[in-house]
Simulated assay, not measured.
Amino acid sequence: MRALICDQPTGYESLRLGEMDDPQAGPGEVLIEVAAAGMNFADSLMTAGKYQVKPNPPFVPGLELAGTVLAIGAGVAHVKPGDRVMAVVDHGAFAARAVAKATDTFLLPASLAFPEAAGFPIAYGTSYGALVWKARLQKGETLLVHGAAGGVGLTAVEIGKALGARVIATAGGADKCAIAARHGADETIDYKVEDVRERVKALTAGRGADVVYDPVGGDMFDASLRAIAWNGRLVVIGFAAGKVQQIPANILLVKNVDVLGFYWGSYRQHAPAQMADAFAALMEMMGKGALKPHVSHALPLTDWRGAFETLLGRRSTGKVVLLP
Rank of each mutant, 00 (worst) to 15 (best):
V236E: 02
G67P: 14
G73H: 06
W264G: 01
A117P: 08
G206R: 04
G313W: 13
L143D: 08
V295P: 11
G173T: 12
R16G: 11
A223L: 09
E158H: 11
L107K: 15
F114L: 10
V235I: 01
V157P: 14
D258R: 15
G140I: 04
V152C: 14
L137D: 13
Q138H: 15
Y51L: 00
I228G: 10
A77S: 12
G218I: 06
D258G: 09
K319H: 04
M285N: 07
V235C: 03
Q52H: 12
L108F: 09
P27G: 02
L4K: 13
E13W: 06
V79S: 05
L322W: 01
I5S: 08
A156H: 12
V321S: 01
P272S: 13
A271Y: 06
A229W: 07
D277C: 00
A227Y: 10
A278Q: 04
D186F: 01
G125F: 05
I251Q: 14
V34I: 14
A100I: 04
D210G: 13
V254E: 10
V235R: 05
T103N: 13
K288Y: 04
V85Y: 09
K161W: 09
F262I: 05
D7V: 10
F262G: 04
A93D: 07
G265E: 14
Q269T: 15
G173Q: 10
I228V: 14
Q138V: 07
K50R: 15
T105Q: 04
E116M: 05
G75V: 00
L234C: 05
I159C: 08
Q245I: 00
R182T: 08
